[in-house]
């Protein structure tokens, strides 16, 4: 391994720019020219290719072209590095969702647009899909809990749908947590099966499932199938 000097390996913007590939602009935000981001990119690549369990500090530093000492300057464990990558991806997706949410006026269309955006985001980057949706459980209960908290940030947006229902006051309190959790699980299962690229196929079913309790089956289906 090379010495612990800045720029231990020449920057490789072209190679890094391809990772994580896709059309969501990660290259600009992720692939800044510094070591910690090289480490994050290397971790994402390793987790996607080999899984969390095989992602050792050596695997990460080798992929990033830095020393173990450099790794420990930024992170004290694989878990910490993983969490940093996870949070960066969540932040990107969150920004995208906030933008889309504001672009639709009507709540059912907002829900649909947000689901479509999330599915597109992960299908465009199967690496991030695996990082964010399947490996948190592999990484252990603490990270799994963090994952669930991030997913459940969507709960208030869905809860707004209660106003649309004649039974607004009688909704079970955990309705939205169950709905959102189910949707996340269904997306995760597709990713686990190696079908991240086909995530957008789930859109109509997920929209219908999310909206039916609030709008009834017929209206939910109309929104799900609207072009």
């Amino acid at each position: 391994m090379s010495s612990d000097q800045p720029g231990e390996r020449p920057e490789q913007p072209d190679e890094l720019a391809r990772l994580p590939h896709g059309r969501h602009g990660l290259s600009a935000e992720f692939v800044a020219h510094n070591q910690s981001q090289r480490l994050l990119v290397s971790l994402i690549r390793s987790v996607a290719a080999e899984g969390y369990n095989a992602t050792t500090i050596t695997a990460i530093t080798d992929g990033a072209g830095v020393t173990t000492r450099t790794f420990y300057k930024y992170f004290d464990s694989v878990e910490a590095c993983y969490l940093a990558a996870f949070d960066a991806a969540v932040e990107l997706l969150g920004a995208r969702l906030a933008q889309v949410f504001g672009s639709a006026e009507d709540w059912p269309l907002q829900v649909r647009a947000c689901l479509a955006t999330a599915l597109d985001f992960f299908s465009a980057s199967p690496d991030l899909a695996r990082l964010c949706l399947t490996e948190p459980f592999v990484a252990g209960p603490a990270i799994a809990r963090h994952y669930q908290e991030q997913v459940e940030r969507a709960v208030p947006f869905l809860r707004a749908g209660r106003e649309r229902s004649a039974d607004a006051d009688s909704f079970p309190p955990t309705t939205e947590r169950g709905l959102i959790g189910s949707i996340a699980s269904q997306i995760g299962r597709k990713v686990s099966a190696g079908e991240a690229e086909r995530l957008p196929d789930l859109l109509a079913d997920l929209v219908q499932f999310a909206l039916t309790p609030y709008l009834g089956a017929a209206e939910a289906r109309a929104v799900a199938l609207a072009r």
């Binding site: 669930q148 947590r177 169950g178 959790g181 189910s182 949707i183 699980s185 269904q186």
Partner: peptide, 11 residues
């Protein structure tokens, strides 16, 4: 989908 949601809450 319901089973997935139940599992989420239980987990």
């Amino acid at each position: 989908s319901v089973l997935d949601g139940l599992y989420w809450l239980l987990y």
